[in-house]
């Protein structure tokens, strides 16, 4: 079992334990009024990093989500110049981190679906080249339970046979460039349902036909079962085809070509 996060997590913990005071000028006034923000700030970002609330990072999600297992979220940080990575998290989820992505050629945005345990802010923090984290977000209200329920897949051996299977399609966008949507068969179990260990997709890389990287995605437990991703490719990076590769936390490989 490969745990690429162990090292990153350890270094983050070390950074947090230094407990440096937040640099001057950092906004502490959470526009979403969540009492967990200060913990998120401390847990998810290095103490000496600059973290600001910024409306240019757009998070779209329904204000009310009746199905806490499958809450649609779209992040768009294109209004910010030079986004190097984006961390998406939900303050009040038992596992706050949802997904991290680095747009290495793709549009700095991502569509996906998440499991929510209770009503919570859903935020995206986009890091720009100067190292500043720009945080946008929205509240999603839900009756909850999404993280502690087992996946449908975990109960059905039939689905295990199709584990990692990718369905996808490419669209030309009216505004130029292309859109890729892909769905991967995976139970995405959080490990919080009794007797069902965490089982979820970790790294996922999208590249063009020549193998040049377009987007690196790191999944965490709260991504929904059979995750669906929406990625936009600017005209300059449109390709004759695409490829996706990755693996889950048990080392199962995901690999597919995305043909037009």
């Amino acid at each position: 079992m490969i745990k690429p996060h162990a090292l990153a997590a350890a270094s983050l913990m070390l950074a947090c334990s230094l407990a440096l005071a937040a640099p001057k000028g950092e906004t502490q006034n959470d526009p979403l009024g969540s009492h967990n923000w200060s913990y998120m700030r401390k847990d998810l970002f290095p103490a000496n990093a600059r973290v600001v609330f910024d409306e240019r990072v757009k998070v779209s999600a329904p204000l009310t989500a009746e199905n806490p297992m499958n809450v649609p979220v779209s992040v768009d940080a294109a209004a910010l110049p030079g986004v190097t990575e984006v961390l998406v998290f939900a303050d009040l989820n038992p596992i706050a981190r949802i997904v991290r992505f680095a747009p290495t050629g793709a549009h700095p945005g991502l569509g996906f679906r998440i499991k929510l345990q209770q009503s919570s802010p859903v935020r995206a923090a986009a890091r720009t080249a100067d190292g500043t984290w720009h945080v946008g977000g929205t509240w999603v209200n839900t009756t909850g339970g999404g993280c502690t329920l087992p996946s449908a897949g975990s109960a059905s051996p039939e689905w295990q046979k199709r584990l990692g299977e990718v369905s996808s399609r490419v669209w030309e966008r009216k505004e130029g460039g292309e859109r890729i949507r892909l769905r991967i068969i995976h139970p995405e179990d959080t490990g919080l349902a009794a007797g069902i260990p965490a089982f979820y997709i970790q790294p996922l890389d999208l590249a063009d036909a020549q193998g040049k990287p377009l987007m690196h995605i790191e999944g965490f437990e709260p991504l929904s079962e059979n995750p669906v991703f929406t990625v936009d490719i600017p005209a300059a990076r449109a390709s004759t085809g695409y490829q996706v590769s990755g693996r889950d936390n048990n080392g199962n490989a995901i690999s597919a070509t995305i043909e037009k």
């Binding site: 499958n70 990692g164 299977e165 990718v166 369905s167 996808s168 399609r169 490419v170 949507r181 892909l182 769905r183 669906v228 490829q243 690999s255 597919a256 070509t257 995305i258 043909e259 037009k260």
Partner: peptide, 16 residues
């Protein structure tokens, strides 16, 4: 929507 989406996505995208 997920069912419509599944149909729309099933057209291409073959496992390598």
């Amino acid at each position: 929507f997920p069912a419509y989406e599944l149909k729309a996505l099933s057209r291409s995208g073959r496992p390598a």
